[in-house]
Amino acid sequence: MSFFRYLKNELFCILHNRRFLVILLILLLLSVFDGLDAYRTYSDTLAETLACYPKNEEGVFLEYPYLQIYTLYNSWLGGRPNKVIPLIYFYTMPAFVAIPYSWSHLQERKTGYIRNVVTKIGKRAYFLGKYISAFCSGFLTVVLPLLFSLGFISCLVPAYRPNVTTDLYYQVGQNNMYTDLYFSHPLLTAFLNIGIVGLFSGLWATVPYTVSFFTNNRFVAVFAPYLELLFLLASAERALVFRSPIETSIIEYIMVTASSMVHNIWVFVGEMLILLAVPFIVVLGQGRRSNVF
């Protein structure tokens, strides 16, 4: 029971953490700007369509107007192809999910607060609790702006079902693991994508926590994994160029919009499993050690 109360405390700390609130505010603002840009594109296209496409006396289009080229599903933050804000969002994600709470263990270890808690619930419970709270902070940091974006855009842009004939406007190509579901159940795809992105960011947020066991420098704990990820992505891309069309970048897998490479679900699952297993094993191992606090 103490463990669950401790988790409740941690959730309270996350939601009242200044860095979490600031990052959330920045991301929400980005969602709003991106949403307004998407709406502008949609409304310009709509105005052009209404002006250019001929209609009969009853106002029915005489030619197919292709209004669905701009729909909710390619206008929200997670579904917009080739736009700067989603690009910033996804490529800085490994940095901003780590900033709010991933290094709280390091902070508590340095200040000595860890002693106050560990003597009440035990080491393993503390470390596991921190793992869970790091995961939650990463998950919430990313999912809330995405949900907000989906909700915000749904108030502005109609939710036309994407049409395969205009797939260039969605950039969800045939090599994409989301393709089938995207054209048949686009809303489900959006929620599934939010879940996957949330899972990735939650797991990623545990990586700086893990690194914090090996360093006392908060900047190294928070940003070194991000840099390492970038270098790994570059190396993997290099390894397979001209040899294999399989996508290896985990960031490209969590984005609905396509890379030009082929998605392989097992590559994605493998990478996520590594992201789950390695920090978790390190955390469990730390629970057994006799540490000097």
Binding site: S2, R5, Y6, K8, N9, F12, C13, H16, N17, R18, E108, T111, G112, Y113, I114, R115, N116, V117, T119, K120, I121
Partner: peptide, 25 residues
């Protein structure tokens, strides 16, 4: 325990800090 320097969470008041500790048990 009070070992070395006191250690609490910077973001919270005195009462909130004690409440967080009291909530555990």
């Amino acid at each position: 325990l009070l070992l070395e320097a006191p250690a609490f969470l910077d973001e919270f008041t005195a009462a909130a800090n004690l409440r967080l500790l009291a909530n555990i048990r």
